[in-house]
Structures are given as C-alpha cells and as structure tokens.
Write a protein that binds this DNA or RNA. Sequence first.
DNA 1: CAGTATCCTCTGAGATACTG
DNA 2: CAGTATCTCAGAGGATACTG
Lengths: 148, 148
Amino acid sequence: MSAEDLRRRRTNVRANVRTVPGPCARWNDEDADFIREVLDLVGDKWSVLIIGTLADGPIRYSDLADAIPGISQRMLTLTLKHLRRTGLITRTSYPEVPPRVEYTLTELGTSLLSTVLALAAWSADHHGEIRRHQAAYDSANARQADER
Amino acid sequence: MSAEDLRRRRTNVRANVRTVPGPCARWNDEDADFIREVLDLVGDKWSVLIIGTLADGPIRYSDLADAIPGISQRMLTLTLKHLRRTGLITRTSYPEVPPRVEYTLTELGTSLLSTVLALAAWSADHHGEIRRHQAAYDSANARQADER
DNA sequence: CAGTATCCTCTGAGATACTG
DNA sequence: CAGTATCTCAGAGGATACTG
C-alpha cells in the first residue's frame, strides 16, 4: 500500500458507510493499526530524541547518554533495543579495550526522522497559539469553579 | 520560530558543541520540548483516531464513540477535553431535548492532522519492512537463548 | 565502557455504575 | 444523550547498585 492511498482509502470507507444509515462511520481496523504502529514506535518518551541524535552520524552509547539529558541507562538501553528490533538503527560493537559500541541510523530510520521532524516543526510553529488556547481554556474553567 | 528553522537550529547547536571538546552534543532544551509537546498531544492511544474522525466534519459524542471501536466513555471524554484545551477541536452543545453536542475540528487541528497522516502513511509504506526486521531480530534472539 | 538486575512509583487506560 | 465518579491494574519509566 502506498502513502497517498491511506488518505483516499479512509475517505472512501467513510463515504460508503455514511451513505447507508446515517453518520456512523468507523475506522478501518487496518488504518487504525498503522497509527498504532507509529505511535508504538515514536510515541514514547525517548525514541524520537534518540533518532534525532543519531541523525548526526554514528554515536557511542555513552555519548548518546550525554546527548540526551535526563534519560536513564535503563531507558536508553530499552529504547535502543526497541529501535533495533524495528530496524531503525543498527548496533556495531568493536572488540577493543575498553569496549566501543556504536549506534547508527538505518535508511529506514532516516526516512522516519524526516517525517517526525515535520511534526516537531508543526509544534514549533504553533506553540504560541497552543499556549494561548490552553490559557483561555484554563481560565474559563477556573471561573466555572469559582461560580460553584 | 519557523518550520525550517528547527532542523537548522539543532544542527548548528550540534556543530558548535562538537567543535569544542569532542562528540558530546546535547539537545537544545527548547527543541526537545517541542517534541514532547507533540507527543503529549498525539502520542496517546486515542487522540489521532479522534482527530481523524473529526476530519469528515462535525460529529456528535455518541457517533464518535461508535466510529472509534474500543474506546471507553471515560477515555473519549478525557481525550476530547485534552484536545479542546489545546485548541484542536471545539465543542458546541445545542439546547435541545434530547441534548446534542457536536465536536468540530479547528483549523489548528486540521493542520496537525495532515502532518500526522504523513506519519501513518509512512507506517503503511514500511509496514512490511518493519515486520521483516522484527522477525529477523526475534529469531536471532531465540537462537541466542538456545545457545545459553 | 556498555550495559543488567531490582525495586519502586505513578499514570494511562479499561470496567462498571451512576446522573442532568 | 452526553457525560461523571470510582475502582482497578499493567506497564512505562526512574533510582540505584552491580558486572563482563
């Protein structure tokens, strides 16, 4: 299945159902799965940060830890395993003393990175707007709480 | 800050640091925050599904529940609140009997949707490749477990 | 250096029951 | 219809200590 198909397909499914009884369209299970798949991949706290760091070229475990403030060894190791299993990164260990291990972004990983960066860019672009909405929403809620 | 800046900025920061002591670049805190912000927004289990459903036009609470199989009332309500607070959707209640409430995607929400759909499309495109990597990784691990 | 192994906490999310 | 109120639990993630 191709990229452009996704949007088209869901729209079609929706349209089909809508013409039958009324408004009650449902997600195609497969489409929902694709969303779950990416979220499972990049929806966690560290994956994107790691992938972004690897974008600058191969890097060692400890340098990775330094580059990503706040990550615990446990989470670093776990996330690296996860990314490796998915084929987004590769691990190369050099039999030296002291041991050296480098992590590298695969082509698959690079292709994902650019898509994810678009998301971060969206956030950067609309950050102000979002903050304004949140503030408005919160103050409206505070007023409601007062009235009670 | 603009969309194109994001990539450029991080690269610069990285380059600056790299020229000083060695490889030990760190994420700019602000950039990492942008990533956290989107993830907090769409990284959960239901947000994207809801946004995607709203893309077809305003829809009522109960129709939303039907359109998204598996979601609980609690999660639907909670996620709707979250999206509303961020300004991605709006809520309009019509004072009728029985009550009618419609949720509508804002422009902000629409702009996010298209970006997120790109991610889903990526998943659709690389799904096969990912599955192959996972299978390979798992069987390699199973062999290791046997050898022990 | 590059990880494991444990323990612990806290939150995301489901199930169920109730209400304006 | 469109929610709210509780209870519950699994697992994501942190802290700390240990190891090939």
